[in-house]
Every structure is written in C-alpha cells, then in structure tokens.
Amino acid sequence: MNWLIDFWRSSIGGKVIMAITGLLLFGFVVAHLLGNLQLLSGPDKINAYAKMLHDLGPLLWVMRIGLLVVFVLHVATGIRLARANKAARPVAYAKEATIQASFASRSMVLSGLSLLVFVVYHLLHFTLGVTNPGHSALKAAGAGGHDVYAMVTASFSVPAIAIAYMAFQAVLFLHLSHGVQSLAQTLGLNHRRYSPMVRTLAYLLAAAIAGGNAFLPFAVLSGIVKVAS
C-alpha cells in the first residue's frame, strides 16, 4: 500500500487525481445537462425521467455515493494542492505580471470554491428542499410524487433564483474552459497535432454546457417553457 500512498501524496499524483476526478465530474455535468434538457419536451418526458432515476433504487444510491466520493476527492485534493502552491512562494512579487496564463486558469481556486457554494445551494434547493420548501412540495404533490417539472418551473419563475443559476453558469464556464484542457495535459496528452484542438474543444464544450444549463432558467423566465398550472 505504500506505493499508493506515495503516489497520492506526490505532486503529480495529486494532479492526476484532480484530472481523473475532474473528468468524471465533467461526465456527470454532461449527463446532468442532457437529462435536464428534457424539461423543454414538457412535463411528461422529464417527470418520467425523474421516476426512472428514482426507480433505480439501490443503484441510484451507489451512483450518488460514488459521485460524492469523486466530488470530495476533487475538492479536498484541490485545496491541498492550492495550499502547497501558496506555501511555495512565501514572498509575493512587488510587481506582479502575467505573460500568457488565461484569466480562467488564474481563477481556478476561486471558481472552484464558488461552484462548491453553488452545489451546496443547489442541493439545499432542489434535492433537500430546505431553501424553498414550497417548490419541493410541488414535486411531491403531482405526477405520482415525481413532478419535477412543476418544481423546476416554479423555482425558475422567481427572477432572483433564475438569475443566480444563470450567473453560476458563467463560473462553470470559466472552470471547465481551463479544466478540460488542463486535464489532458496532466494525463500526458500533449501533442502539437491535437493540443490546439483540445484547447478549442475545451472552450466549446464549456460554452455548450454552461449555455445549455443557463438556457433552462432563461426559458422559464421568458415563458418559452410554461410554468405548470
């Protein structure tokens, strides 16, 4: 087991953990978006999808716990590496300058922590029904207890909530635009043939995901998606 602990503690081991958990979380975000886009097809489609997920039973819990482990690993390793990075430069430059590092790459810790706050809020809001119990009650009331459509549309028809969700998608765009290209480099995928393509792809994917997510609150707010009556 020593070699595993050594790997875990090493700088590159930490980076690899960030890359692999990042890739898994990226996969989750893609699946999450594809699932939620069914909101555009009306209540029947998305509510059936919610029931299907719920009916997975124990398998759903395996997925949830797996996701939680990956998430905690990503956050904890990120914090560990960020602290080591801070300690590696005890005295800051009097004159700071950046040659080519992108804004997104320089704000990864901040965007990451912001997303952590968002995820906690998102869970409190929809999954646990703490912040707006009324919205969750709508879900339980209709469609056999799976009326996600009513819950989501009611939530996003509150402008403050819809705008907050859209604002956090901008943060997600920043985080993914650097994260996706960074994980390729960390996993050793760097080649003049495809690296420029990976960089472009990272921006496109980040924009597609953030844009897709932000479209849902926008669609409800602007009346493209009708609020359940």
Binding site: S11, S105, Q185
Partner: peptide, 25 residues
C-alpha cells in the same frame, strides 16, 4: 518544496531556451 503545476504555461513563456510544456506532459 516547489509548488504544483496548474497548466498555465507561464514557465514556457519565460524560459530563455523556450523549452515547451510538452516536457511536463
């Protein structure tokens, strides 16, 4: 006690011998 790479590529831009970040990958 060096820090960890976050793939920002400032090193490559500052290197007087222009060593590419490919070597990090």
């Amino acid at each position: 006690g060096f820090g960890n790479c976050t793939n920002q590529y400032e090193c490559e831009a500052a290197c007087p011998k222009e060593i590419p970040v490919r070597v990090i990958a």
